[in-house]
């Protein structure tokens, strides 16, 4: 199965899924050099989840904040907090791409659709909790 097919299938499976709180997932495929599936959770439109496939893994990424949003003099405390949270936080990890802080989860490319939707749900929860946890370091 091609990557695009798999992503399309994933989109179909995710579209309309509900969280426990009743928020609905919407998935949309964005074609490009690497196809990206954009998943939006209702009421959390500010933090879409981007899902990509390659040969070795399925990557779910959400953008958090930019370097410019970090309070002056608080960067070290922020990084310390993120590193410390990395392990206790279920399934997701923090990272940085350029000046963009991200939260992500990686799954084996053999994972089934149920695994992926669960990952997305947890990632979305973790996103809000993480921002809340480090809000004191952000502008």
């Amino acid at each position: 199965m091609s990557k695009q097919q798999t992503l399309n299938e994933l989109a179909a499976a995710i579209n309309g899924t509900q969280t426990e709180e009743g928020s609905v997932f919407t998935a949309e495929l964005i074609s490009g050099e690497v196809d990206v599936l954009q998943v939006v959770v209702e009421d959390r439109e500010e933090f879409p989840i981007y899902v990509t496939l390659d040969d070795s893994q399925i990557l779910c990424v959400t953008h958090l904040w930019k370097e410019s949003e970090v309070k002056q003099g608080q960067r070290e405390s922020l990084l310390d907090a993120l590193l410390t949270m990395n392990v206790p936080m279920p399934l997701s990890s923090f990272s940085k791409v350029g000046d963009q802080y991200i939260i992500f989860g990686a799954l084996a490319s053999s994972s089934n659709i149920g695994d992926v939707s669960y990952e997305i749900e947890v990632l979305s929860d973790n996103t809000l909790e993480a921002i809340e946890a480090v809000a004191e370091f952000l502008n």
């Binding site: 964005i30 050099e33 690497v34 990206v36 954009q38 981007y50 990424v61 953008h63 791409v97 963009q100």
Partner: peptide, 11 residues
């Protein structure tokens, strides 16, 4: 890296 780039664009 390419994936991250695409995600960046999409975002």
């Amino acid at each position: 890296v390419k994936t991250t780039e695409s995600v960046q664009k999409a975002s």
